[in-house]
Design a protein around this nucleic acid. Structure first.
Ligand SMILES: NC(=O)c1ccc[n+]([C@@H]2O[C@H](COP(=O)([O-])OP(=O)(O)OC[C@H]3O[C@@H](n4cnc5c(N)ncnc54)[C@H](O)[C@@H]3O)[C@@H](O)[C@H]2O)c1
Ligand SMILES: NC(=O)c1ccc[n+]([C@@H]2O[C@H](COP(=O)([O-])OP(=O)(O)OC[C@H]3O[C@@H](n4cnc5c(N)ncnc54)[C@H](O)[C@@H]3O)[C@@H](O)[C@H]2O)c1
Lengths: 217, 217
DNA sequence: AGTGCATAGTGAAATTTTTAACAATCACCG
DNA sequence: CGGTGATTGTTAAAAATTTCACTATGCACT
């Protein structure tokens, strides 16, 4: 019997669950109904035990001898992660990257609804992008409180990231996703995540160098 | 005495080294000459021992009783990661995100030089972005071999990511950074990294949900 | 030169995370 | 309606990673 656990859930587990959801969505589109931990593991590039363990933190979602029902499992994971509802999001910094995010429907499809965008550049304020008017960032704190926004996305230059974060914190935001390559400080009650693709470039460069040293090329 | 180690280096270490470099660059701009592992750790949000351990994989870069010389340490880490040279990069998929990447000088500043961009859309082929002409993706394998390209960046829609990867692999690329939310398969000699910001959105949403359950709000 | 002080480097301990192994259980079949 | 095969959930072992505690060493000051 499975009792609700209050173990701390590894951050790596959360990250993998997101991958599982991704792959489950592909399967669902392909009309696949059932999947075993072994097959899913192979697709996601992990160990099958890992998948069963990750899922065990949240409940029992499979059928022994059969596997997991794709649709059901996707739903279960989404619910476990708190993704079975919409989240109001604001974006700070309407530059190249900010625009790319605003124009894509990827966020909305996953339940993250960008309800406002802010910039400090007077030339950008008033512009309309993807049906959203760019506002002056000084109005941010007020707006987020009014609109019940919980997550802020920072796409300003790195040296402005902390300032953007301060606005968001003042606005009562609970989580920040920072695309600028700069650490920011925030109170404990605010969750901060860093999206830093340069790290991944570094990683690849390092891996290639290593392989070269080891003579694999 | 420090002898060159052939231990496997944790992936997490690489990721942290990238953060250290980031912060060291900020310090250097501020004119700071010396930093202790304790202070750097605080800035990067990690444990001081962790920093010393991470660096120990590559050598001895500090001065006991003093700390690390900022400029020197930055150089040492960059060299350790294989970043003390330029890397030729190609980009596949000139959409919103691809353009944002092409327009930013962030990559070049770090030694990653985008030498060509490819798309399969006839309307985009021939267009010039940031001084680079968009080429037809069918020419990719040939071009990459000619230009001695080692890294490929994928910014196509997810369902096209594997195809893009295949072109890159055919072109003799050694590493791939994939921005599309889709796993890709590649031979062992190709390093693949995934940049998936949706995972970070999930993470933040999950953290907020957890805190709410625990009654922290 | 010697002393004190600060901080890097390092081996061992603690903790966390992953993997392996297996008992439990479900669907299916005769 | 019990046996069979498959695959989960779970416990135990292994591996990896992080943190601690301590030693070594360089610098500044006397
Ligand atoms: N361009 C990319 O492909 C890319 C990819 C990954 C990460 N990043 C990072 O994302 C960030 C943005 O990149 P970009 O290419 O969009 O840069 P950008 O210069 O095009 O855009 C930055 C925007 O932020 C605005 N801004 C500056 N300070 C602000 C403040 N205090 N409040 C509100 N808005 C403010 C600017 O007016 C500008 O519109 C950078 O930190 C960059 O390093 C960029
Ligand atoms: N837009 C964002 O802010 C953002 C952020 C993170 C990740 N992503 C991901 O990055 C990818 C690209 O996003 P986008 O917003 O730029 O999408 P987009 O639709 O604007 O651009 C995709 C481009 O890829 C091209 N393409 C398609 N198939 C191709 C192929 N086989 N070879 C070469 N080019 C091909 C298309 O012609 C198009 O120009 C998507 O997978 C998206 O999920 C986007």
């Amino acid at each position: 019997m499975h009792y609700l656990k209050f173990e701390r859930i590894p951050r790596a587990t959360i990250s993998r669950l997101a991958v599982y959801v991704q792959e489950l969505e592909v399967m669902e589109q392909q009309g696949l109904k059932v999947i075993s931990s072994e097959k899913l593991a192979h697709l996601c590039g992990v160990n099958p035990s890992q998948i069963r363990k990750d899922l065990a933190y949240f409940g029992e979602f499979g059928v022994r001898g059969v596997g997991y029902y794709v649709h059901e499992l996707r739903g279960a994971i989404r619910q476990s992660l708190g993704l079975d509802r919409n989240w109001n999001v604001v974006l700070v910094g309407v530059g190249n990257l900010g625009r790319a995010l605003l124009r894509h429907n990827m966020l909305r499809k996953r339940g993250f609804v960008i309800v406002a965008a802010f910039d400090c550049d007077p030339f950008k304020i008033g512009e309309e992008i993807a049906g959203l008017e760019v506002n002056c960032s000084s109005k941010l704190p007020e707006s987020t409180q009014e609109m019940n926004v919980e997550i802020g996305v920072i796409t300003t230059p790195p040296e402005r990231a902390q300032r953007a974060a301060n606005y968001l914190i003042e606005g009562g935001i609970k989580g920040i996703v920072n695309f600028a390559p700069a650490r920011i400080t925030a109170p404990d009650y605010v969750s901060v995540e860093y999206v830093d693709f340069i790290h991944h470039m570094f990683s690849v460069a390092f891996n290639i160098t290593q392989k070269q040293i080891k003579g694999l090329f």
